[in-house]
Write a protein that binds this DNA or RNA. Structure first.
Lengths: 131, 131
DNA sequence: CTACTGTACTGTTTGTTGTAGTACAGCGTA
DNA sequence: TACGCTGTACTACAACAAACAGTACAGTAG
């Protein structure tokens, strides 16, 4: 099982926090293909948020092709399908890399340090996958 | 001189686009220490937005320690000062790396590809700095 | 049948974003 | 000094997003 934790004080919307954490759980392998997600109402009760907020997050993940819904049963992690073209996927990742580099640069990090940090985080993710 | 371009149709707020582009300009060296920024009203007229929106963006950059204001003269790029501790700066960068990796992973990229993309973007930035 | 699941509405509230207008104070130059 | 530029600080308003609240309906499984 896996658990989610949100912070209402954050400037990041609740539904985005849910999306990010499920995405992360799938990326690390905490959630595998076929696994069921917490029910909309169940997770809403656990996080003390409205069920519409959870539904909104799940809908976003469905659009990304990461999970699918089954009426009356719940949400499940899907087999990875390529819903975006290679070019589109590359574009999406690049659009995240660019601001990261600007921020890191203006914070005083040089190329080597940035690359080291990224490499470090990648390894941290890989280790999680093996646990 | 450097120019800014914004897209009103984007889901990214105008003031954030301005912040990101000035930050990027400083990161690439397009803007150097001491350089003056476009005036609040001048840039507002050029971008056809309200001058308050530009002021809001500049205020954000002042808080980040990237630029400073001089009453009656304008905004200028500051000498890099460490307004955050090393730990805090590292934390900020990491908080950007994490979602990037999750997104890239769920889009189907493996570790090597991600690292290659990041390296590629870093080199692209470096080339800009030398032009 | 019943209790769970997802789904789909209609409202309402709150905070952010952006516009619009106004006003005031500091700087530099004619 | 006077003028035109600069930043700064308000108020008021419209539009939108986020989240909550409540309700209702349809599919699934025991």
């Amino acid at each position: 099982m896996f658990s989610l934790h949100i912070s209402t004080g954050s400037d990041v919307p609740i539904f985005r926090q849910i999306v990010a954490q499920v995405r992360s759980a799938i990326a690390t392998g905490t959630l595998s293909v076929g696994d069921g997600l917490p029910s909309v109402r169940g997770l809403a009760a656990e996080l003390v948020v409205n069920h519409n907020t959870v539904a909104k997050a799940y809908t976003q993940l469905v659009q990304d092709g990461l999970i699918e819904s089954q009426q009356g049963r719940g949400y499940f992690v899907t087999q990875r399908r390529e819903i975006y073209t290679k070019a589109e996927r590359t574009r999406r990742v690049k659009s995240l890399i660019e601001p990261l580099l600007s921020e890191a640069k203006t914070l005083g990090f040089d190329d080597e340090e940035i690359l080291a940090l990224v490499t470090n985080e990648i390894e941290k993710l890989s280790r999680k996958r093996k646990e």
